[in-house]
Every structure is written in C-alpha cells, then in structure tokens.
Amino acid sequence: MENATHPSYFNLTMFVNIGNYRYPTFVLCLLLYALIISANLVIILIISREKTLHEPMYIFIMCLSINSLWGSAGFFFRFFKDLLSDTHLIPRSACLFQIYVIYTYASYELTLLGIMAYDRYVAVCQPLHYHNKVTSKLVSKLVAFAWIYPAFSVAACVYLASRLPLCGNKIPKIFCANWPVVKLSCVSTVINNLVGMLVSVSTVFLPLAFVLYTYARIFLVCRKRSSEFRGKVIQSCLPHVITFVNYSITVFCDVALSRIDLEALNPFLAVILSLEFVVIPPIVNPLVYGLKLPEIRKIILRMLSCSKSDKQMNR
C-alpha cells in the first residue's frame, strides 16, 4: 500500500520516441542552452560592471536574466538526461524539486514584470518625482519581495502536493508540474486547489492585471503629449512590452496544456508547446533588452569592437 500511495518514481510520458535523432536533438538543445547561458550572462556582467547602468530599470533587467538562468537550469539538466534515455522515470524528490524550481521561475518572472511596469509608470507619468519615489531602498525592497514571496508560496504548494497519497505515477509532460501530480491524488484535493488558486491569483493574475493597468495609464498620458515624447516612451517601454506579451503567451500555453487531454494532441505539438514555456523567455529576454535598449546595445558593440581590435593586434 505504501508503494502504491507514495510512488518512488514518476514517469514522464510525453517524451516522443525519436530513435537515432536523439543525438542531433541533444546537440541542438545543448547549443540552445549554451545560448541561453551566454546571452543572460552577458546582460548580468554588463549591468553589474557598468556603474552608469546601476539604475532601477537595469537592476530589474539583471534580475530577469538571473531568473532565466535559474529556470532554464531547473529544466535542461534533467531534460538532457531524458533525451538520451529509453526510460523517463524521475525520483519523487527530484520531481518535486523540479516543480519548485520551474514554478518559482514562473512566479519570479511575473512579479519582476509587475515591478518593472511600476518603474516605467512612474518614469513616464510622474517623471519629476521618479528619483524621489523609485529610490535604491525601494528597489531593494521590491526585489526582495519579488524573490521571497514566490519562494514561500510555491513551497507551500509543493509541500501539500508531496503529502498526497497518489493512485498513479504518470505525468503527461516532459517536465514535472504541480497540477498533474495533484490530479493523481487518491483523496480530496480541496486544500491543494484553494492554496493553488490563492498563489495563482497573487503571483500570476495580480501582476498581469497591474501591468495592464499601468500601461493603460501610460497610453492615456502619451495621447496628450507630443510625437517626440511618444517616441521616447516607446523606446523605453517596448522591451518590457515585448517581454510581457511573450511571457503571457507562454504562460497561457502552459496553463492550457495542463487543462486538456494531452494524449489527444499530436505528440510533437504537445512537446513543442511544453518547451515554449521554459525555453522561449530565457532566450528572448536578453536579446530584446540587448538589442532594443541603446545603453546596453552600445556597451555590447563597444565590447565587440574591442575584441576585434585585440585580435587584429595579436595578428
């Protein structure tokens, strides 16, 4: 009975049998992960080293890159092993840990996007009070809240899921997720559902609603100002808008996947949609901020030109 209600392993059933293509796929995914690491590390190093970028907006961007490294590590290390394996069994403890990492990654992303929306709102709508309102002390408090609250709220969800007696061990995904584990429960999951709903509202829907509210206010302000002012606002806010829209789409896809019968979908489509949630944002975020924000773009171009000149001198 103990083994039936508390299985030692979970079986990730969405992995497609690709035969000899597993090795090219492994290499491709390894290159993809290397791109994620290098792109986000460049953003982190540039912002941490350049004193001119020690401003709230860039601090938040650096936090996004740190979060991308956290979330992608929680997914890719296990994914690489499963790509080269014929069986896709994951120990119960490892599965619960992966749930914690991926869900905190998702929550951090949304809380940080909400904080960044507030930063852009004050900068555009109350520019004269920006430095008085968005102080280094407030930035520290906001970043601490963005990390600490999701860490404890997600831990509560994972703990409740770990206590459930389960009537199966099959998870229809390519990584561990909380809702599929809860659905395996042999008993009522009312408490899990209530806590999960509270956490979802506070870490997902409230930040999303706040971002929409702030940009509605920014839009109303821009309508009354000059085209030059609107151009500056677009240049400042566009990277955040792209990141927000991109992440909202990936979250929607993941939520939709968790609520439908994945076995009825084309397996390749289901895998691609699952990958989007943990792969696309960590790639898109540093590229968007590196290419769209002139301050970061100038430093990157300067670093590239210096490296080219050094190579020419060595020749």
Rank of each mutant, 00 (worst) to 15 (best):
T5Y: 13
T5D: 07
P7M: 04
L12K: 00
T13L: 05
N20P: 00
Y23M: 13
V27A: 15
L28E: 07
L30T: 15
L32V: 06
N40H: 07
M57T: 09
C63P: 00
L64S: 05
I66M: 12
R78M: 10
D82V: 00
S85H: 04
H88V: 04
L89W: 10
Y105L: 00
L112N: 12
L113P: 08
R120A: 06
V122N: 07
Q126H: 15
S140M: 13
S140G: 10
L142P: 02
A144K: 13
I148S: 13
Y149E: 10
A156P: 03
A156N: 03
L166Y: 04
G168W: 04
K170I: 05
I171W: 01
F175C: 02
W179V: 08
V181S: 03
L184I: 07
L184N: 07
S185P: 01
V190Y: 12
N193S: 14
V204M: 10
L208D: 04
A209P: 00
V211Q: 06
Y213T: 03
G231T: 05
I234D: 01
Y247K: 07
S248K: 01
I249R: 03
A256K: 08
S258F: 02
E263N: 13
L265Y: 10
I272W: 08
L273I: 04
P281V: 08
N285E: 11
Y289E: 03
G290S: 07
I296E: 06
K298M: 13
L301R: 14
L301T: 05
K311T: 09
R315F: 10
